[in-house]
């Protein structure tokens, strides 16, 4: 019995366990403030909110596993939201294609980032930063001169806020579908294996005859697409797209991935951890707002708690 238990703990990363532990602590702390904190309704609502972050964090995790980072999240989210609502203004066909169009635009941005990182060998930190500025520039141009159509379609609204089965939010189903696909992708496919290999040592992956550059480009494309998808849903959630709607998502996405035990230098991490990280971050934000702390205090506590949690379990091994 102890054998199986210890082998179970050896297989599940300690950071992942710690992240789930922190979730429980947060729930307990939250329940002290409000009795409704542990109610199914509240928790489902949290999971709905978490779904948007979950999509973004999924893309971020893919990129972080490669040892890269995607700083273009804020404006690619906005691109997703704005482009899908733009398509919605082009008549019935546009309305029908609004969601895929928004996602495709994000994938295209991601594709360019991926090309820059994989083939031009520009550090992702700087290239995605540039892509973020380009995306911002394009969106500013679009909204600056005139007031464009910015209302989401009914489908977007339904996907983001509706509840079809068992009162479970549709957005959560979206995240579950994307998450399941990602777990399969990382664990069972050549693509996933290649992602981990590149994150560990790209040189060795290349010499093993793996298509490293293509995989890097595809991972960035996925990240862009997922960010845009989140943007589409966010636009559906608030019925419209607006500038800087993606700004509040960069730090939480990175934090969720890292708190979930993924090595920021690449090569190690599990999707279960990212799920834990996303829920953790969402709960933390929720508690801070339930406690009615002002924005200043929220930012301060938010940053401090992330640092604190990482100090507890996210430390690197000492080099010697």
């Amino acid at each position: 019995m102890t054998m199986t238990l210890s082998s179970f703990f050896a297989r599940v990363d300690k950071p992942v366990l710690a992240a789930f532990g922190c979730i429980i602590v947060l729930l307990l702390v939250g329940s002290l403030y409000s009795s409704s904190f542990l109610s199914p309704e509240y928790l489902l609502q949290q999971l709905q909110v978490a779904s948007f972050l979950g999509l973004i964090a999924t893309g971020m995790m893919l990129v972080v596993l490669l040892g890269q980072i995607d700083l273009s999240v804020p404006w690619v989210v906005t691109v997703g939201g704005m482009m899908s609502t733009a398509a919605a203004g082009w008549g019935p066909l546009g309305e029908a294609l609004a969601i895929p169009f928004g996602i495709t635009c994000g994938m295209f941005m991601g594709l360019i980032s991926g090309f820059g990182v994989a083939y031009l060998r520009v550090p992702s930190m700087i290239f995605t930063l540039g892509m973020n500025a380009v995306a911002q520039g394009l969106m500013v141009l679009r909204t600056g001169g005139f007031a464009p159509q910015d209302h989401s379609t009914d489908t977007m609204h339904f996907l983001a806020t509706g509840r079809s089965i068992l009162n479970i939010p549709n957005a959560l189903f979206v995240w579950i579908a994307v998450g399941a696909a990602t777990i399969f992708l990382l664990g069972r496919t050549t693509f996933g294996r290649t992602v981990y290999a590149i994150g560990n040592k790209e040189r060795a992956a290349y010499l093993s005859g793996l298509p490293t550059q293509r995989v890097i480009m595809l991972a960035f494309m996925a990240s862009g697409g997922l960010s845009a998808f989140a943007g589409v849903l966010l636009a559906g959630y608030s019925t419209k797209a607006y500038q800087s709607m993606g700004d509040p998502y960069l730090l939480p996405a990175v934090a969720a991935v890292v708190l979930g035990g993924t090595n920021i230098l690449g090569g190690r991490g599990s999707y279960i951890g990212t799920i834990a990280g996303v829920i953790l971050i969402t709960l933390l934000q929720s508690i801070l707002s339930v406690m009615q702390i002002d924005e200043a205090g929220r930012q301060l506590i938010y940053g401090a708690v992330i640092i604190g949690m990482l100090l507890i379990y996210g430390r690197q091994k000492k080099v010697s």
Binding site: I69, M125, L251, V254, A255, V258, I264, L265, D294, E295, A296, G297, R298, Q299, L300, I301, Y302, G303, A304, I306, I307, L310, L311, G314, R315, Q316, K318
Partner: peptide, 26 residues
């Protein structure tokens, strides 16, 4: 935090940045 906490600079400063902003807002 980076040296003795052994956290990655990018994550550390992303989080401390939020803290500094909180103080500024306060």
């Amino acid at each position: 935090i980076v040296i003795y906490g052994r956290l990655q600079p990018i994550v550390t400063t992303l989080a401390t940045g939020a803290m500094f902003y909180g103080i500024a807002l306060w």
